[in-house]
Amino acid sequence: MATITLKDLVKAYGDTEVLHHVAADIQDGEFLVIVGPSGCGKSTLLRMIAGLETVTSGEVSIGDRMVNKLEPADRDIAMVFQNYALYPHMSVRENMAYGLKIRKIDKGEINRRVEEAADILELRPYLDRKPRQLSGGQRQRVAMGRAIVRDPQVFLFDEPLSNLDAKLRVQMRLEIRKLQQKLGVTSIYVTHDQVEAMTLGDRLMVLNGGYVEQLGTPIELYDRPATVFVAGFIGSPAMNLITVEASENQLKLPNGAYLEGGNDLGKVTLGIRPEHLVSDGIGPIRVTVQLFEQLGANTLLHGVLEGTDCDIVASLPGHVSASAGTVMCFSVQAQNLHIFDIQTGKRIGA
């Protein structure tokens, strides 16, 4: 168990800087999720913490130790890879025991730890099988088992669920969370899936193009996204982002309608979450319906602002239907409006 401190971390390949001055303090026992689109540098960051990539500048500390120059094996970490990276010629038991064997840990102790991990992960019947005889979910569990038996200070997960089918992914997500809470080991988890990020993380770090866009709890990120990028990335379906004209206490939509709120700011980006659009028949946001997606519990409406080509998505409770081309009116509460600077993308105001 340990804290992890990232100080001003930079990664560059030649002249190309791919990670720009990343800083974070991760608490003991915390579950941090690093999330971002592919190519944003999230795996690179994780691999730098693991010691699989060199650090160009800055510091990685685990506990009180600066580990920049330490080999991965000496950092007291365990990592779960996307493709599990199980040794195909070893049985499940040997796979889990391999790291301990190298550390010259006593045989009885190895067996005890492997069996304990196997019990936690319900892998006991499979201990003598080879990885290729296991299903995807079981392999995933073996990879976790390999991490658990090491009893490390830190767990690192590199998109561990992306090779599983959707249903199994949801199930394993819960299991990972439960396991982490049970063991209380500081964990860093990389994913591109924002739902996974929201459900797993104590805190989320949103990376984009090598920059940290925001670091905070899932609810902070959802309620008060710091940038347009975070606003569009967190939440599903994605937030509606509309360019509006802000004048004294009024926001002018592209189709000429007015919303209350805002200051005298000129052009700004307005964000409204689909679930915050309330269909009341009289609201100022008039949307021409294009199509509906029926999800059962709620309905997604896809349309455009009346008279413009500005796309709008609204999430409505229950079953709703109307023919394409009809106009529906929505309103939105002032506290659910997010306003961002059009140039910098930064959040303005509360």
């Binding site: 693991a50 699989l52 991965p72 094996a73 990592m79 790291g99 190298i102 390999r146």
Partner: peptide, 26 residues
């Protein structure tokens, strides 16, 4: 896959260990 090497590195296997325990059997 590279992950096999990385996984062995995290497990603490040095180059010769990796050669004997992983590469040769594979």
């Amino acid at each position: 896959p590279d992950e096999m090497l990385e996984s062995a590195r995290i497990d603490g296997a040095g180059p010769m260990r990796f050669f004997w325990d992983i590469l040769i059997p594979l």
